[in-house]
């Protein structure tokens, strides 16, 4: 009975995280493209979309924390290792990228989206490596 509850709670946490993430991604698209393509610069709607996106982002953070707390100890270790590597690469890579922009070592601006992509890819690779390591 207890076992079943543990697994059901894990599935519920994953589903909950997926819902918050989809909501956050959709409202991010809304706040990015809405002012130009839907409500043509209406500031009130832009503010509403922005705060809706921000609220869903906060919800997603807590849903992610609940998801991680619900993992079993090996999955937690793999996840924490991957997060540590992603954070390190994000800080070091992000600052190095910024310095390259400031010193004109690169011919384009260091956009925040590059940093997000770098962290995401690093996290995914670290998760896969971790899964293989303990296979």
């Amino acid at each position: 009975m207890e076992t079943s509850n543990w697994q059901e709670q894990k599935k519920k946490n994953i589903k909950n995280l997926a819902i918050w993430t989809v909501g956050w991604v959709l409202t991010m698209a809304l706040v990015t493209f809405g002012p130009k393509f839907i409500w043509e610069g209406n500031q009130l709607l832009t503010y509403l979309a922005f705060f809706l996106n921000l609220g869903l982002g906060v919800g997603m953070i807590f849903a992610n924390r609940n998801h991680i707390n619900g993992l079993d100890e090996l999955d937690k270790k793999i996840t924490f290792d991957a997060m540590a590597i992603a954070l390190g690469v994000g800080v070091i890579g992000g600052l190095s990228f910024s310095v390259m922009d400031i010193t004109n070592m690169i011919g384009f601006d260091a956009e925040i989206s590059f940093l997000v992509i770098l962290i995401s890819i690093t996290y995914l690779i670290a998760m896969v490596v971790g899964k293989f390591r303990y296979k």
Binding site: E2, T3, W6, D72, E73, L74, D75, K77, R133, Y134, K135
Partner: peptide
């Protein structure tokens, strides 16, 4: 794994001595 509420992979990793369990486990 079901009896001690962890994943099968965790039991496998413990058996292969790749992962040391927590005191709780």
């Amino acid at each position: 794994a079901n009896s001690v509420q962890v994943s099968r992979q965790t039991i496998n990793a413990i058996e292969k001595e790749k992962f040391d369990p927590s005191l709780d486990l």
